[in-house]
C-alpha cells in the first residue's frame, strides 16, 4: 500500500504537471502515507488519545502548511 502510494507520489512529481491541484494531491498522499505509518507501524491505534493526537496533529499541521503554500 505504502509502496503504491510512493510510486503515485513520484509519478505526480516527475510528470511536471504544474498547478496547485497536483501539489494538493501530493500533500494528500503525504498525509495518507504518514497516517498509515502512525497507525500501523508506530502502532498508535492502541495508544492513549493524547499521544495519538499529538503525532497525528503534527502530520496535519505540516501537511496543512505545505498545502497552504500550494494554494496561496
Amino acid at each position: 500500500m505504502l509502496v503504491v502510494l510512493t510510486f503515485l507520489n513520484v509519478l505526480l512529481g516527475t510528470r511536471g504537471y504544474a498547478g496547485s491541484w497536483v501539489q494538493l494531491l501530493t500533500v494528500l498522499l503525504i498525509w495518507a502515507k504518514g497516517s498509515l505509518i502512525i497507525e500501523f507501524f508506530m502502532h498508535l491505534h492502541t495508544a492513549p488519545a493524547f499521544w495519538r493526537g499529538m503525532v497525528h496533529g503534527w502530520l496535519a499541521v505540516v501537511c496543512a502548511g505545505i498545502a497552504g503554500v500550494a494554494v496561496w
Binding site: V10, T26, I37, F41, L59, V62, A70
Partner: peptide, 25 residues
C-alpha cells in the same frame, strides 16, 4: 523493542514528508 521500533518509524515518518517536500513538490 517497541521503543526502538517507535524511533525508527519516526525516522521513516519524517522521510515520508521530507521526500515529496524537497524532491517532488
Amino acid at each position: 523493542a517497541w521503543s526502538a521500533g517507535a524511533y525508527w518509524h519516526m525516522v521513516d515518518l519524517v522521510w515520508v514528508v521530507l521526500f515529496p517536500l524537497v524532491y517532488l513538490l
